[in-house]
Amino acid sequence: MSDFEQAFALALRLLFSFDPALIEIVALSLKVSLSALFLAGLIGLPFGAAVAVTRFPGRGGVIILLNAMMGLPPVVIGLLVYMLLSRAGPLGVLGLLYTPAAMIIAQTILIAPIIAALTWQVVESLEGEYSELFRSMRVPFHRRVPTLLFDARFSLMTVMLAGFGRAVAEVGAVMIVGGNIDHLTRVMTTAIALETAKGDLAQALALGFVLVLIAITVNGAVIVIRQAARRRAYA
């Protein structure tokens, strides 16, 4: 059996034996990325929707900035969050550096613009359809945003899944602000990088399988949501 085949077999054994170390890393990854997704959703969904329904000076600039921030390099975000949270930084007193909270903050900053920009696109399109109805029904502004967010729920679910996919697969930012500390801040991507560097390909491969499985699940969920939306005429 070649090294590669051995590593492959060991990886499957680790996976199907529910290796505690592996489970711990996967669980932390999901906890960090789902927390970041929740926070980014709280920020990005209403912000994107508000930009879609309001007209104000500089709106075009905000939209350009949002779109530009979709492509922010994770290591740059990691560096900025590191500078904010390090002892000498403005938020150093909180002592969050090298904790899961720091990783959540970094991932939130990474995916909130993605969620906001995609939400803006989805909601602006729906707003075009609803705007005359809203004006006719005298729907106040504070009701427009939640109404649009609710009615665009199928599309926004796929937006959230895109954000989750980006967060869970990210390595640069969490490596910088989390430090890849065993049993504390080690997540799938940082563990894969470490185990590969150490030559422990089985562990890296097993985690890689989980990541690929998550990617397949996310994409499967997107397809299922789209089909459900189409069946229900997006209603």
Binding site: E132, L133, S136, M137, F150, D151, A233, Y234
Partner: peptide
């Protein structure tokens, strides 16, 4: 007052 459009715009819900 209320207005009904020629082509109804219905919310994406029940």
């Amino acid at each position: 007052q209320a207005l009904v459009f020629q082509k109804p715009v219905l919310l994406r819900r029940s």
